[in-house]
Amino acid sequence: METILLTEDDAALRGQIRFALEERFEVREAENVLKAVHVLNSENITLAVLDLGLPPHEDTPEEGLRLLHYILENFGIKVIILTGQKTETAALESIKSGAFDYLVKPVSMEQLMFSIDRAILFRDTEQELSKQGTAKVSFGIEVGKGLQPAREEAEKNVILTVLKNTNFNVYKSAKLLGVKRESLYYFIKKFGFKREDIDADS
């Protein structure tokens, strides 16, 4: 069963969302960033629904964005933003950081459920593809600067993903990527990858 982390500072609203979700999922609650981090580290959370306006800065998205980055960097789970922050900057920052969806309050609970189902479907499909050797790599590029930067960014992300998955084992990585070890060393040097950086990230 999915275990969803619901981070929302409004206790009344949290109760209603929790009641709706717990019919189908395990739900863990957090009212602030500290509590959310504690839950993430102590439970096997598989998906997160996150409000951006969290204490002590309820009226700005900064606390929520901080938590979003933390979740994506450390747990790699799908995150659905459910927030009252309708600013373009917050939406842009969330999507750019890798949030799965951005829902602006008030939203129908059906929409929230639909978004959760889609997130689960995407995650499962990605996992299935990963088993078949197809890794989903996402990256941001500035359109209009030619294809060279996009190609380099794609190469960089693919190599980084494989190196992470193999624990920086160059032999295994080269085999998985279908390139010679010498070529892989060339890319590692070119992109400045270091074992300690990758270890620290993972």
């Binding site: 609203l13 209603q16 306006g53 009226d59 009252g84 609970m109």
Partner: peptide, 22 residues
């Protein structure tokens, strides 16, 4: 200042309606 609270209350009502039916 107002919007944050109004949106949460509206969202609460939406959740309430959804839950009552289920």
């Amino acid at each position: 200042f107002l919007l944050h609270d109004v949106k949460n209350v509206t969202q609460f009502i939406k959740g309430l309606i959804y839950n009552i039916d289920r």
